[in-house]
Nucleic acid binder design. Sequence first.
DNA 1: TCCAGTCCTCGTACGGTGTACGACGGCTGG
DNA 2: CCAGCCGTCGTACACCGTACGAGGACTGGA
Lengths: 277, 277
Amino acid sequence: MAAPTELAVEPGGRHRAGQASPPGCRPSLSPQRLALAAIELADAEGLAAVSMRRLAASLGVGTMTLYYHVRDKDELLDLMWNEFLGGHLLEEIPADWRAALTEIAQRTRQSYQRHPWALNVAVRPALGLNKLRHLEQYLAVASRITDDPDEQVRIIHSVSDLVVGCTLRELSGQAYRAPIKRTGHHGDGPAPPLEPQPGFDELVTAEELPRLQALRTAGCQLLAPRFEHALGWLLDGIEAAHPGVGQACPRAVGAPAPDPGLVGTAATTRMLPKKRA
Amino acid sequence: MAAPTELAVEPGGRHRAGQASPPGCRPSLSPQRLALAAIELADAEGLAAVSMRRLAASLGVGTMTLYYHVRDKDELLDLMWNEFLGGHLLEEIPADWRAALTEIAQRTRQSYQRHPWALNVAVRPALGLNKLRHLEQYLAVASRITDDPDEQVRIIHSVSDLVVGCTLRELSGQAYRAPIKRTGHHGDGPAPPLEPQPGFDELVTAEELPRLQALRTAGCQLLAPRFEHALGWLLDGIEAAHPGVGQACPRAVGAPAPDPGLVGTAATTRMLPKKRA
DNA sequence: TCCAGTCCTCGTACGGTGTACGACGGCTGG
DNA sequence: CCAGCCGTCGTACACCGTACGAGGACTGGA
């Protein structure tokens, strides 16, 4: 469950899966199936549980079988990352640029929260097809704000950086408050309100940290989510830097809106090569 | 070299290192020394090279000796993280709040760039003393913008989130362009200008990604740094949300400015407990 | 002087990991 | 019938984190 993209997987192993599926069409192994199974594992038991042995076992095959479909564990992670990115592509992009950027950001955020392991994989640079699709969607919005390509890129990066940074912080925070036994449920409940750290008091009472102390006595919670505030400020800044953008809403631009079939079909496409072994 | 904080380490092992050093004062093992050695290792050969065996070897002791000073490898990572954070505390906080936030952000950024492994450790929630000091410095600035503690926290988070997100993206980008042999040098040279991905063209020429294609033909580089733009926008938004802050610069507030001695002395202090074994 | 106790070190061993190598069966085309 | 590929997988190796317990150095009290 909770696989980011649900789609029929065409068989065909290592070399060029482009052809039509052979008649005996059972859903044998494939990079995508590997990725989906690995994601399921990571969602359920954390990224550390994704070992080649466990993944193979969960697929009912021998360990080394995986290495026929995947060069590395790194490549497996790349595939997971690509699949993850495909999971939060928008079907339709809102006409208003603020709404659009907000929607993309929040979808991404939710996706990270559903698949916390993705943050540990995010360091990986692999530029997969879905990453490009994601960028394309961002670009569709940014191009309504400015015509300068460099500026478009700056806008996109600033928003997506904020998303990643904020989500990373939030997830480490809630990783704290559930220090052990990270079973499947991550965001259940609205999170306990107070600063949960035991022994927090001893450290903060140090006369060295007056403002933190004041914050604590004020009952302020350090881990409050409030991502929207930050994004709002950033968008305000962007808007101020690009006058004459706010009102002239140029109707719903024909969003690329990748038809669901396409998203899946080409997803088996090899990631871009990373090592030239 | 390049250890974030350089300071005399007092000996004394597991239980309460508070007392004065015994006469025979050779700099034996200590959590701090472990952390510093581990950081040196991680700087030189990446986080993956930091194994208990290698760390022990680099210190000239047996592997299991480490476990007398550290409960876990996790605790070692916590110590590294704490030491890392201590490495970019400001000695003096600029009077102007924009300059102050910018300086904190950039110092943090540079620190991440010097120690890229820290981003992989950043998922860890451990609230060490240096983390609190870092927060305190942020708070010293945020309290000049608003009196609302919750708003202060929101401001701090938004800035630091942007820093983390941006740095994470940049480092993965340059991790790409130096795919193998990640030796010590990370940011040498201004980075090659063009989109370096081999095979990038094949993917982008897909008619599915028109805007990316346009971007590429426009010669725009996707991995341009330009962190300052994003931060500028964010600060603009914050400033706009808090009118009457920009000009009334209330002189150089007496920054906590932890005297260098203090920063070091207490740094051996145990991290806050994470697992309640 | 002896002994008990604490601090610190470390060798060994166990179960886990990623993966190189080569063997093996089944299918297909000549 | 047979060569050759596709896909599978067992074994082995080096490395990892760490539980366990032995042992040495040094202390303070008897």
